[in-house]
Structures are given as C-alpha cells and as structure tokens.
Design a protein around this nucleic acid. Structure first.
Lengths: 238, 238
DNA sequence: ACCCTTGGAATTGCATGCAATGTGAGAGAA
DNA sequence: TTCTCTCACATTGCATGCAATTCCAAGGGT
C-alpha cells in the first residue's frame, strides 16, 4: 500500500515518526492488527499484553496508543484503556458526506496545479488498471485493482497542493477501507469506473476543474450505489 | 471560549481526555501557552522544563506532547523534541481553501437537519452580536464579538449532524484564530457580517440549503478580503 | 583559512516500580 | 430470589533511573 510517492518535500506532520523508534514500530504493529481484524471493534487493547507480545516495555506502547487515539483508530476511556473504534451506519454516512465534498475539491484544485510528472504517473496507473479489467478476474486481480485504485486516488489528492486536505482525506477514507475490494463490481461497473478515471485525467489536462469535479462526484455516487445495493439490509441512508 | 454546548451525546474522540488526569492538564496548559504566545513558532518545548514548571514528572508531559503533535499544534523531530508549528502563507491558503468548502457544506447540512432548540440559540447569539455592533466599539466589545462569533459558527457546524466534519473544522480554524479580532472591521463591514448571520438563519428556516451555503461563502470571502487588504505589505497571496 | 574529527553536554527514548482508580465477584441482608 | 455492600484484582496513571542519540564546540590536521 505504499504507492511509491514521488518527491514529497512536505512537512509530514501526520503520523509523527515512521522512524526506527520503538514507539513508531508499535504504532504500525497495532494499526496493522486493527486492519487484520486481530483487534476487533470495541475490543480493548491492553498495553501490558501488547508490550509482552512485541517484546518492549509498556512505555512505547502507551505512547503509540495515545497517537492512535488522536488519529481516530482507537477511543480512550480514562483509567480503563483504549479500544478499537466501532463502525456504525452513521459513521459510514459521515464519511461519505465528507468524501463527496472533499474529493471533488481535491481534483478541482489538482486541475489547476497539475504538473507533468504527476500526470504521467496517473496515466500509467489508469492504464495498468484498465489492462487488469480486460483479463480474467480472480481474487488476485481484485486485490491488485484495489491497490492501484487506492494509489490513483491518493496521488490525485496529493496533486491538489493542499496538505491538510490530503491528510484529512487520508484519515477519513482509511477507516472505511478496511476491506475495499472490487469483488462486487460486475464488468459494466468496472468499465464505468475505469472510464471515470480516464475522464478525470482528460478534464484535468483540459484545465477544466468543474468537469473533473463532477466526474469525481459521479464516480463516488456510482460506487456508493453498488455498495448499498449489495449490503441491502441495514438502511445506511441516514 | 466554551460556548455552552447543549446536549452533546457525541462520542468525543477528539482531544482524548479533558478529565482530571495530569496528562490532560498538561495538554491544556501547553495549548494555552501556544495561544498566549508564550511558546513562539519554531520554539522547542522541552519536556523537562514543562515538567518542572507544572510540577509533574516528564511522563505526562511526554504524552501530552505526543497528543499535541498528532493534533497539529506541534511538530516532532525524533530525538530532538517537539516545537511549535510554523504558520506560513501557504498554511493560510490551505486553511482558507478548506473553510470555503467545509463551512458551506456544514450550513447546507444544517439546513436539512436543524432542530428548533439549536435555532433558538443561534438567533439569540445573532441578536446579541447585533446589539453589540450598535453601541460604542472598544476593545471589550471587539473581544466579546469575537467570542460570540466563534460560538455562532461552532454551533452552526455542530448542527450539521456530522461529527467528523465538526472536528475537522475545529482543528482547522483554531490555528488561524490565534488572534481573530474584529478591530479591522469598519461599521459597514460589521453590519454586513451581522446581516450574513441573520440571512443564513433565514435560509435555513426556509429549508433552502443552497441559499445558506452561498451566503456562507460570501461571508467567508468578505472576511478574507478585509484581512488581506489590511495586512497589505507582504504578498500573502502565494 | 577551512574542513574533519572528537569529545562532552543536553535531550529524548525506554524500562521498571509504585500509586490511584475502576471493575467484578462474592457474601450478606431484605 | 434480588439487591447492595465490600474487598481483592486487574489495569491504567505517574515517577524515576538509565541508555541511546543528537548537537555543538573545541582541537588537530590539511
């Protein structure tokens, strides 16, 4: 999921220190376990247990937990510990409302500030995804597709030239992407999705921000339609 | 600056624990000193010094610093410490771009989900602000006005029914509000600002989200115009 | 004069021990 | 049976000591 970001001169003041410090390692380890499902929602993450399993003392574990709480991965209850945040229908609604506003904003800004190098990378990603959709579609392809799609959106957002916006979207989408796959996409939906990507790049190249923004909205709304029709049962719409 | 929030059932997973724990107290104390200007931009906040001055050990200080870093107040440099984040023209641009999108979104959502009790409070705040603008305008009035204005916007955003949106705006505007006063507003600008508030409430009462959104955009753009024209000298526009 | 190296001081990073707090089980009474 | 009180346990919160790393300045070499 590293997306090979190019020339990031930014002051990455998001996830503190991805350095070799014990705290950073614990931070990543716990995050991984949340994504893995090892730590399930509402389950408490005991600092003594984590310290034992990762062979460090409780101190770096405590600091990692604090960071994860501030970033929204965990919720802290004083004198009781930190537990994995729950994911409700309301959370899904909130996140979607935000994405529907922030991602079009990002591509709109990107349309005004795009640089050739980034555009080349984006086109490359789009091409690779299109190639994937034309072959057989197994689990490996779906996984690869999800990864490339994530990189595409991420790169596009970075191109907005607004670090805060990028950070917000990062922290907002990640929670909803615990398992974002394309298994539920039929060939038509898949083709349309790829078409959207290509169209956004065309709009950006044409310096037409409004066009790009609206394609992005269509892209998100179409994706939501698929997911809500699949999940069916619980009324996710408010 | 407490705004007497009403019936907040939300899972406040923002600023960890405003409880009576030492960490929370240190957290608030440092935040206050940043706002005060006691800690200036790029200045390092040494944990030993803070611990000595607040009469606690280094442990709660360390944890408070970690939280403040995650929240964007400080930036951490591994093995070197945490220092107050700098505020550049680029930061101002990023924040304004975000506010110009997020605040209209918030009032738009609020227009669809407004409840009578909140509307009453908003009208009360607007009335009090209008009353202030009609009398003499000294420092005290400006300060009170800034406080009421902050509460008005905050309450409006809460009424959006999107906790994540509210949290984002909170974390985005606070940094730019280190000194947000109305001293540079002449009577005409002040009157227009109050008119905007009232008009937004009217639009919301009329269930007209688009109207409310556009008044908010005008409100923000007008405010920015005032600040950029006052500051003059250094070219703040990139 | 300039650069590289090498100490030492300051600071953060981590481990451990103890105190404070909250939780849950079990005993006792209504 | 059910409610309440109590007490022991588990867990977090905080303090302190030591190790690791960085920065800066002084000294020697080129």
């Amino acid at each position: 999921m590293q997306c090979e970001r190019s020339a990031v001169t930014s002051t990455d003041h998001s996830t503190a220190t991805p350095g070799p410090t014990a705290t950073a390692q614990v931070h990543e380890a716990i995050k991984q376990r949340i994504l893995d499902g090892t730590y399930r929602p509402l389950q408490f993450v005991r600092e003594a247990a984590v310290a034992r399993e990762l062979a460090v003392s409780r101190t770096p574990v405590r600091e990692a937990l604090r960071e994860l709480v501030s970033e929204g991965w965990l919720e802290a209850i004083p004198h009781q510990g930190a537990r994995v945040s729950e994911w409700t229908a309301d959370d899904a609604r909130e996140v979607f409302e935000l994405r529907l506003v922030l991602e079009p904003m990002a591509v709109g800004l990107a349309a005004r500030r795009m640089d050739p190098a980034t555009m080349t990378q984006l086109k490359d990603l789009a091409t690779r995804m299109e190639a994937l959709t034309e072959g057989p579609l197994g689990g490996a392809e779906h996984s690869e597709l999800a990864s490339l799609n994530h990189c595409f959106h991420r790169l596009l957002i970075q191109a907005s030239g607004n670090q805060r916006l990028a950070q917000m979207l990062e922290s907002v989408v990640r929670t909803s992407i615990i398992r974002r796959n394309f298994a539920s996409y039929d060939r038509e939906a898949l083709h349309r999705s790829m078409q959207h990507h290509r169209e956004m790049l065309t709009a950006i190249a044409a310096d037409n921000a409004a066009w790009a923004e609206n394609v992005m909205r269509a892209h998100l709304l179409a994706a939501r339609e698929l997911h809500t029709t699949i999940v069916t049962s619980p009324d996710t719409a408010r």
